[in-house]
Amino acid sequence: MERALYGEGGFYRRGERPAEHFRTSVHASPRFAGAVARLLAEVDDALGNPARLDLVDVGAGSGRLLAHVLEAADPALAARLAPVAVEIAPRPPDVPAAVRWRADLPEAVTGLVIANEWLDNVPLDVVEQTPAGPRTLLVDPATGAERPGPEPSAAELAWLERWWPLREPGDRAELGAPRCAAWAAVIGRLERGVAVAIDYAHERAARPVYGTLTGYRDGATVPAVPDGSCDVTAHVALDACATAGERAGADATLLTTQRAALRGLGLSGARPPLDLAHRDPRGYLAALCAAGEDAELTDPAGLGGFGWLVQAAGVPLPAQISTSRP
């Protein structure tokens, strides 16, 4: 999975743009960036409006989220903003000059970190329960053919027992320890502020029995063959990442849904009053389009069903989100 995504000739090393293969909140509507801008403003106030405010987009892809947040933010705030895109793919030519592009995390962050659909692409191993116990699956990178391999390490078995216990032969789990470590690295760099991980997620009480590993290419799901031709992804155990973040220094944690979070940030999806169509037809049409985009972003069967892991260090949890629990 590491080689298929990030190795020489890997899916993301080639500069593939996510919008060409799957729909994300960032590409669904700029209103998502508007909600992030409102969250950023609350974090800014909690920090006391510092002279420099960091905004870090981890797994930035095309850089579109940062570009849209810069457009949506209050000009006075935008003037103090230090936007950073963390992305191994080459910098696209249309990214605003204000955005710093780098392949690794900054050493220290005071502000807001957004990791939208990043953790699901942090490589991991898959384990299957066999009559002889858990075994790590080995995969032919050319065909995707699988066979049982060695027993997981003691640390991996401990992670499984705590976060994704396997019971019956054939049950599968995705070893999420690398995602926990990746998220802990983000929180460890957060001196003061808020970090948000947004992803397909599941919780310990309802892990999928056969796992979630899949591939995406050209807008369709495909077999997760790790040959570099497709995005290989798996849902995230955000509850395990939350514990890792707390160990790394997070003071407060909230696990919620995108639907609840975005509604707290002002995306209600409510249709405009019909009489507006007579008084201001253009205004009505614009409000109707906005309601439709809000509805897509908060649809519990789609993007609204994403998990949000919100963790704070040195500041309270954002009230706009923490008062909007699912």
Rank of each mutant, 00 (worst) to 15 (best):
A173W: 00
P169F: 01
V126W: 03
H278G: 06
P131Q: 06
L5C: 10
A82S: 09
P169M: 05
P134G: 07
E16R: 13
V58D: 00
A277H: 09
P75V: 07
F22G: 05
R147P: 11
P150L: 03
V315R: 07
L238Q: 02
L65I: 02
R172C: 08
P148T: 11
E174P: 06
E174N: 05
A295T: 14
R3Q: 15
T143H: 08
A67E: 04
E71T: 13
G269L: 03
A72S: 14
E296Y: 01
V139G: 14
H27N: 13
L175D: 08
I187V: 15
A132Q: 13
D74A: 15
A155G: 15
P93I: 04
A41I: 04
E16P: 03
A181L: 14
D299V: 06
A201L: 02
G219P: 00
L303S: 06
D280G: 04
R172Y: 08
L105Y: 00
R52W: 02
T110S: 14
Y210C: 10
P30H: 08
A67G: 15
D125K: 12
R31N: 06
G63Q: 00
Y210G: 14
A248R: 05
N49G: 12
G211L: 05
A195F: 09
A182C: 13
V127K: 03
R167D: 07
D280K: 07
A33V: 14
A220R: 15
T298P: 13
S322V: 15
A301I: 04
T233R: 02
G193H: 12
A313K: 15
L47G: 04
A67I: 03
E2C: 07
R91D: 04
L5P: 11
V310S: 09
V43L: 07
E156I: 03
F306L: 15
F11I: 06
H27V: 04
D218V: 01
V194D: 09
W308R: 03
R100Q: 04
D140S: 13
Q129I: 00
W163K: 08
P96C: 13
E246L: 12
Q129L: 12
A19M: 11
G193Q: 08
L175P: 10
P141K: 14
P50F: 06
T221Y: 02
T221V: 10
T323V: 04
